[in-house]
Amino acid sequence: MFLLIYSTLFALTVVFALGVLVFRNTVKSAISLVFTMLCIAANYLLMRQEFVAFIQVIVYAGAIMVVFLFVIMLLNLREPESPAWYLRGMRYWGGALAFLFFFVLAWGIQVFSVADLTPGAAALEELRRESGQAEVTQLATLMVTRYIVPFLLTSVLLLVAVIGAIVMARRKDEDGRDITFDEDEEGA
C-alpha cells in the first residue's frame, strides 16, 4: 500500500515536471510547476519531514509561484519568437546537460552514502523519540533558544531588503521629480 502511494507520487512528480517543459503556454507551464512543488511536498511528508513539507508549500508553491505568475502576466508573453541562430542548438545542449546533471546527482548519492549525511534528520528523530514532540516544535524551540541570534538578525535582513527594494524601485525622487538617467560617464 505504502509502496503504491510512493510510486504514484513519484510518477506524478515526474509527469508534472515534464509538463513544465512540454507546455508551450507559459501559464500552463507555471501551473504545472505548482503541482510539481506540491508533489514534492507530499514526498517530504511521506519521509516524515513535516516542517520541510509545509515550508515547501508555503514558500515555493505559495510565494515563489505567485511571483512567477505575476511576472508572466506582467510581461504578457505570447508564443516564443524564433531564437537567434546561436541559440538554436541550446535545447539539445540543455538536454545533454540535464542528463549529465542527473548522472552527477546519482553518483553523488552513491558516494555520499546518505545514511550519515543527515545528522539533522537523525538528531530530530532522536529528539522526537525522547520527547514525543513533533519536529516543528523541536525546530521552533531551537530557533528561540540557541539560534536566537540568526533568528533575530533575519528581521534586520528583511528590513534592509525592504528599504533596498524601495530605493531601487521608486520612480520619483524626494522632490517629486521623475528619476531619469544623466548622461554621465561614471558614478559620483
Binding site: 535582513l157 531601487m168 525622487d173 528619476i179 538617467f181 544623466d182 554621465d184 558614478g187 559620483a188
Partner: peptide, 14 residues
C-alpha cells in the same frame, strides 16, 4: 544587501 543598494543608490547614473 545594504552594499548592493548603496552602490546603486545614485539612480540617475547609468
Amino acid at each position: 544587501l545594504s552594499l548592493y543598494v548603496l552602490v546603486g543608490i545614485d539612480r540617475r547614473s547609468r
